[in-house]
Simulated scan of single mutants.
Amino acid sequence: MPMSSPARPVLLLTRPRADSRRFAAMLPEWRAVISPILRIVGVDHDGVALRDAPGLVFTSAHAVAAAGPGQGRLAICVGGHTAQVARAAGFAVRTGTGSAEGLLPLIRDAGVPLIHPHGRHLARELPVPGVVVYDQQPVPLTRDAQALLAGDAPVVLPLFSPRSARLAADAARGARAALWPVAISEAARAAWDAPAAGHAVAGRPDAAAMVAAIRNLPVAEQ
């Protein structure tokens, strides 16, 4: 009786739906199941202070709308996608390297007072005043995602923050499928505390490096 081929690995994408769809489009050769593990919910904040701020620091594209029209104001952005959203809103953008550390020299050289609008759960404090403008609320996995974890195919989980890594690990604990977490940073990798068949860390903290790390996984060759 001929041996069956091993099941092809599947991506389990747990970022908010629009972010997950954008990432899935970067890996068109992979089957992807989207199951956001967080939802972004706006919270009450001092909108006037943000609209009047001469400069903003954005560590997530989700914070840009809360700052009001850019009108040529300075926006220091963590990476390319956030910069694209801020530029479309009318900000004069300076782009970092994808990490909080990469923002520090831009903050130091800004030349204007800055405010950092951000989510309630912050991976790292920055040396500028912060305003919480949204919450990242946990969401249970969908039935499709649960079925994937209970199946035979290896599951690759891109992890884009320490908090989402912790939530994904909790949700995946006890999975039958072999799990391959791929983290955007060492901090995100360290936050994963569930069993794993293997793991990888992106060479840079950006989506393109995450794609490269996924394609270089041993399981990707199945």
Rank of each mutant, 00 (worst) to 15 (best):
V132M: 08
D206H: 13
G70T: 12
A49N: 08
V155G: 00
H121A: 10
P218T: 10
R189G: 00
D152Q: 13
L141K: 02
G79H: 04
P105K: 06
V219Y: 07
V211W: 01
A169P: 02
P127G: 14
R166M: 04
V64L: 01
A92G: 04
S164K: 02
R108V: 02
P140I: 09
A66I: 06
E101T: 15
P2D: 12
R73F: 12
A150E: 11
R108S: 13
P195C: 03
L106H: 12
I115T: 11
V133I: 08
S60C: 06
Q222L: 15
C77K: 01
A110D: 09
S35D: 04
G55V: 07
A172L: 03
P36C: 09
A178R: 07
H116L: 00
V64T: 09
Y134R: 05
V93D: 03
H118S: 09
P69F: 13
Q146F: 01
A168D: 13
G47I: 02
V85D: 05
L27T: 14
G55T: 12
P16H: 13
A100F: 11
A196E: 06
A147D: 15
R73Y: 12
A202R: 00
H62L: 01
A61V: 03
G174M: 01
A53V: 14
A196F: 02
A177V: 03
Q222Y: 08
V132E: 11
T142A: 06
T142E: 05
V139Y: 03
A202F: 04
A153I: 13
V85A: 01
P16T: 15
G98A: 07
L149T: 05
R39H: 13
L12Y: 11
Q146D: 10
P138F: 11
P154D: 14
R51V: 13
P181S: 08
A220P: 02
Y134S: 06
H116R: 05
P129M: 10
A191G: 05
S99E: 14
F160C: 07
Q71C: 13
A147K: 10
R120C: 05
V155R: 00
D135G: 08
N216V: 00
D52I: 01
P2K: 12
P127W: 12
L104R: 11
R73H: 10
A88W: 09
W180H: 04
S4D: 15
R189N: 06
S5Y: 12
A177T: 07
A145T: 13
L126K: 03
H121V: 14
G79S: 06
S5M: 14
V78M: 07
Q136R: 13
R120D: 15
V128T: 12
A25M: 07
D152L: 08
A191W: 03
